[in-house]
Amino acid sequence: MTRARTVVVHPDAATLARVTAARLAVRLVDAQSTHRPVHVALTGGTVGIRILAELAASPVRDAVDWTGVHLWWGDERFLPGGDPDRNETQARAALLDALDVPPANVHAMVGPDGAASPEASADAYAAELARYAAPSSGAATVVGAGTAPSDDAGPAVPAFDVVLLGVGPDGHVASLFPGHEAVDVTDRTVVGVHGSPKPPPERVSLTFAALERAEEIWLVVAGADKADAVARALAGDDVHRTPAAGVVARGRTLWLVDVAAADGAAAG
């Protein structure tokens, strides 16, 4: 499998969020025309939540049968349920509360009110992923950070139709940060994270092994402060320095960026 990526540049962050929301709705409708259920992993951050808000305001959202969509997260802050800093809480306010998604289809990572540690939360989420694993999935082994996924059984995760990811100024994706040991985890689908350089220090994250089983991965990035990270990632930087460089989908990997975030790549 090649490591080819497609880069789509939008004029500004507002356009990026609006067009990505429409793109996601169309992708879900197309997916539902061939199979059910559909599995999507959401992301947090300013742009990630703005995409959800744009989708909530779009009439295109009603073309999706949300009762047949399962929603997951690429990572979560290890905070109690309902905390305003949780990706889940922000996603519910931006979009999910306005949809008819069955509660059982919203797969949130538990915080300290439901798990004794980030590792316990990670274990619970790994078990939840395995419950909905694609028929060809097997044990959570084989795929390593930054390697193109093979056609073997692979880790026990759902057949993600789309995984949305943001990219930090340091090049992190999900809660896989530069220099952190989670980048090298190959035998688990979910990992507890300690010492995050962004607060809070404790988080839960999908690993590369889980992310790379997605049919499509969309890395959505806006802002001049992300330009250097985007340039390094697209140039194939070491994943220990720029984790985003190691993200590749089974099918299509899209970099959806605004002009400010693309400037570094263009200069390179």
Rank of each mutant, 00 (worst) to 15 (best):
T2E: 05
R3F: 01
R5H: 06
T6M: 05
D12G: 10
R18Y: 02
V19L: 12
T20P: 04
A22E: 14
L24Q: 13
V29I: 14
Q32R: 13
R36F: 04
R36P: 01
T43Y: 11
T46A: 14
G48W: 08
I51C: 12
I51Q: 10
L55F: 02
R61A: 05
D62Q: 06
A63F: 06
V64A: 09
D65N: 14
V69F: 08
H70D: 09
G74S: 08
D75W: 06
G81L: 15
G81A: 15
G82K: 15
D83R: 14
Q90H: 06
A93F: 02
L95G: 03
V101Y: 04
P102T: 09
P102E: 05
M109R: 09
V110R: 15
P112G: 04
G114N: 11
A115R: 15
P118C: 11
A120S: 13
A120D: 14
D123T: 15
A124E: 13
A124N: 11
A126T: 15
A126K: 15
A130P: 12
A134D: 14
P135C: 06
S137Y: 07
V142N: 01
G144W: 01
G144N: 02
G144C: 08
A145F: 06
G146K: 12
A148E: 03
A148W: 00
A148S: 08
D151G: 00
A156Q: 03
A159W: 04
F160R: 10
L164V: 08
G166N: 05
V167F: 00
H172T: 07
V173T: 11
V173C: 02
L176W: 07
F177N: 12
G179V: 07
H180E: 09
H180S: 10
E181F: 05
V185D: 03
D187P: 02
V193D: 07
H194S: 08
S196M: 12
K198C: 05
K198S: 08
P199F: 08
P200I: 08
P201V: 10
P201H: 08
R203I: 03
V204D: 02
L206Q: 11
F208Y: 14
F208P: 01
L211Q: 07
R213S: 06
I217A: 04
V221I: 15
D225F: 04
K226F: 03
V230S: 01
D237C: 00
R241W: 00
P243G: 01
A245V: 00
R250Q: 09
G251I: 10
G251R: 08
R252L: 07
W255F: 13
W255G: 02
G264K: 00
G264I: 00
A267E: 04
